[in-house]
Amino acid sequence: MPPRPKSRRNRGLPEYLTWDSARGQYRYTHPTRKTRHYMGADKATAIQAAQRLNAQLIPADADLVEQVTNSGAYPSRGRGKTWAHAVSAYVEHALPELDLGQDTARKYRTYLRRLHDCALKNLPVDGIEVKDVADALDTITSGKRMRNVYHQQAIEVFRYTIQLGWRRDPNNPAEATRKEKTKRQRERLTREQYDAIWAQAPHWARVGMDLALQTLQRIEDVSTLQYTDIRDGALYVVQQKTGARIRIALSGPLEDVIERSRADSRACPYIVHYRPRRLPPRDRWAAGRTHPLQVMDETLSRAFSAARDRVGVCAHLPARRRPSFHEIRSLGAALYRDQGWPEDQVQQLLGHRSLAMTAGYLEGHETPWTDVSSGLCRE
């Protein structure tokens, strides 16, 4: 198959020299390492530099047979594998081993598809440098939060390639790129605000709120907890997002929440349940609904937000910045810390993989003052 014709801007340029329209500069790609170097916008200067580089890096008497023979040995040693190969291998072999929830795994695959098709796609993974990764992340997204998401995914892919031996350099180039500082968008929820919202919420939503406060679980896990998950004096939770398996001992407050959930005497396997005014036919049920009295997480979230707005919590802020149901998880973590729980124990209840993530949840909740006495005696 003949090669694709060069674009108008690249016609007449030496080998490995191209015009980068995004930067408005000429770019030279190293023939073997595939690293990119920018030559400025002056065409004559760039051509002269590229010709000199080609003369040094591509000897005229190179043995073509030897080149083909050597390149054939690359795949067995992992060299010659491109970034696209690396991402595909990670998705196929490493991602399933993380045991992620279905929704989270689907999000990760979406992020990894974009990384697969980014500017690194055809670069050999053994030759990718920090600058290459930084440039690629900048072209994928301009949002700080999403850049950090792609940044972390790139780190994991490079770690995987290093483990496979596809990179001779053990340093991870993605780890050396900057991580953006992001500001929390939503306001934290205080205990006083929680109590005010709780007083305005319907009975079934109070049950969901208290379950979240006591167990620190996400809304999708709270809404799917069933009475059969209670056994041997504990509540068994398998987090949908992370796959973490958590066994929570039944304490007095948690038992009270579960008992209150039974007060309506309605037969439903789900702890959080209610009878809606109108339920569509079974063939039109939302995905994930298995019982007519089941409360979907969207319904629980809307009930919390409606009670919050009736009370007027953070009414001066736009809706996207007011505390959401998810902030109950952060509030509960802070309350456990204030009661003397060490952060690693709070981390276990949250199901976080690292203390750094737990610290992020505790951020914004001030640690209470410790009362101490003073008064040294004068000599």
Rank of each mutant, 00 (worst) to 15 (best):
T182L: 01
L293T: 06
R23N: 07
L120G: 13
Q348F: 02
T367D: 12
A94T: 04
S88Y: 06
H30T: 13
I128T: 00
Y16I: 00
Q102G: 03
K131F: 08
S251M: 04
S223D: 05
A134P: 01
S88R: 14
A73C: 05
M146I: 03
R8G: 09
G312E: 06
A84C: 12
A196S: 15
D221M: 01
P276T: 01
S142Q: 06
Q185M: 11
T358R: 07
V157D: 09
A263D: 13
A333N: 03
V65S: 15
D232Q: 14
Y274W: 06
L235Q: 08
H93G: 01
Q214S: 09
D221I: 04
I258L: 02
P5V: 09
A212P: 05
E66F: 03
R245H: 12
S374C: 07
H291A: 10
R262Q: 12
E180V: 05
S374E: 10
D138K: 12
T141S: 14
R77Y: 09
A356T: 14
Y336A: 09
E379N: 03
A73I: 07
R284G: 06
E92R: 15
Q200T: 06
R8L: 14
G78F: 00
S7G: 14
I58R: 15
V149D: 03
P368G: 06
L376C: 04
A60V: 09
G288Q: 01
P14L: 00
E379G: 09
Q226E: 15
R231H: 15
V222C: 03
R353C: 00
I328T: 07
A306Y: 08
P75F: 08
Y74P: 04
F325E: 13
T104C: 02
Q152G: 05
R262F: 00
K241E: 00
Q152F: 04
P323I: 03
H93Q: 15
S142H: 02
A94D: 06
E255T: 13
Q48G: 09
T370G: 00
Y111T: 13
S330G: 11
A319I: 08
Q102L: 14
H273P: 08
A263E: 15
G375I: 02
G340T: 10
Q239H: 12
T29F: 08
L211K: 02
A333F: 04
R275V: 11
R191F: 11
A50S: 00
E66W: 05
